[in-house]
């Protein structure tokens, strides 16, 4: 005895409800006489019927509906056609997926696997709070490094509290969005993402600073450094969107790629305006001690000034620019 399971999908393709049928034909429409009643004003009272064909396919027949029935991805109005299991139909505003016992499900997430452990970890409240606290402490340490006068730990308490608060607000806003768009409880996850994301950004910043410090005028070093930061930002965006929405993976990828594109474009534009704006300050990387002095690429005086011919050319270029 063949069983048809009809799934009503949301616009992202996630099932909203399922119904099992063993009696054929299954009639679908807005009218109360149907086997599956759709509350969709664009669906006809008697819209379509599904029976089992002799070849084991689902025979879908449109019952002269006003707006028609379409197989997903096709623009041709469907009259009567045999469709395999897992096909998707579009009628009115509704998406229907035809399932049977033969339909495949995704493999079980194994308890103890890496993905499962990570999921558990970021969802752990104590882990999330610990990471956030650690980040607040880092912020305070960073502020302390900028001081060259006598300071007390208490001078940095308000910065630490502000950081904690920022993390909590961030997680609250995103988990609210997540509740709205994907009906999930993700506050702890976002708290973890905030702290871990910040640490990843700091690490990428270190790599970037070290690269520009060691090779100050090399385009490759600055590209590499900025590239690292970009990858981390993209990763953070991806995770946030993945947990907050029910968007398909490729859509999230596209959004993240677009955001990165906008970021790169802004960088290029600001570099361009910087170059074309008059500035009588010296512009160079003045940082010191980003990497141990022993591994710096040292030159002798002659080689350093041999490179200055390029600097002269660049200065000449600057003077020709309007």
């Amino acid at each position: 005895m063949e069983t048809l399971i009809l799934e009503i999908l949301d616009k992202h393709g996630k099932p909203l409800s399922r119904q099992r049928f063993t009696q054929f034909p299954v009639r679908i429409g807005r009218d109360y006489s149907n086997d599956l009643i759709l509350d969709d004003e664009a669906v006809s009272p008697q819209h379509l019927a599904i029976t089992l064909s002799e070849e084991g396919l689902w025979l879908v027949e449109d019952l002269h509906s006003e707006n028609g029935t379409y197989a997903a991805g096709s623009k041709a109005r469907l009259q009567q056609a045999p469709l395999p299991t897992d096909s998707v139909l579009h009628l009115g505003h509704t998406w229907l997926q035809l399932r049977s016992a033969a339909s495949q499900v995704a493999p079980t997430v194994m308890q103890g696997g890496l993905a499962w452990r990570l999921n558990r970890l970021v969802g752990n409240l104590w882990f999330a709070l610990g990471a956030l606290l650690l980040f607040a402490l880092y912020m305070m340490y960073n502020e302390y490094l900028g001081h060259a006068d006598k300071v007390h730990a208490s001078d940095f308490v308000d910065l630490g509290l502000t950081t904690l608060l920022a993390g909590l607000v961030w997680a609250a806003v995103w988990s609210l969005l997540s509740r709205l768009f994907s009906q999930r409880h993700t506050f702890r996850e976002y708290l973890s993402f905030f702290a871990l994301g910040m640490f990843a950004l700091i690490a990428a910043g270190w790599v970037s600073d070290a690269a520009t410090y060691m090779f100050p005028d090399h385009l490759l070093a600055s590209l590499l450094g900025n590239g690292f930061i970009l990858v981390v930002v993209a990763g953070i965006c991806f995770l946030h969107l993945r947990f907050a929405t029910r968007l398909k993976r490729w859509k999230i990828h596209a959004i993240v790629a677009a955001l990165c594109g906008v970021g790169i474009a802004l960088q290029v534009v600001s570099a361009y305006t910087e170059q074309h704006k008059f500035n009588d300050a010296l512009q160079f990387d003045s940082s010191i001690g980003n990497v141990p002095n022993q591994i710096l690429p040292y030159q002798d005086v002659e080689h350093f000034f041999a490179d200055s011919r390029a600097t002269r050319q660049d200065a000449d270029e600057n003077a020709k620019r309007d």
Binding site: P216, N279, F284, P297, F304, D314, N318
Partner: peptide
């Protein structure tokens, strides 16, 4: 025109390491 700077790490004859910006 705007300044163009070149930075590097110069080791003096006696070995004194300098961050040098021209």
């Amino acid at each position: 025109g705007n300044f163009e700077c070149q930075s590097g790490f110069v080791k003096q004859k006696d070995g004194l390491p300098l961050k040098t910006v021209f």
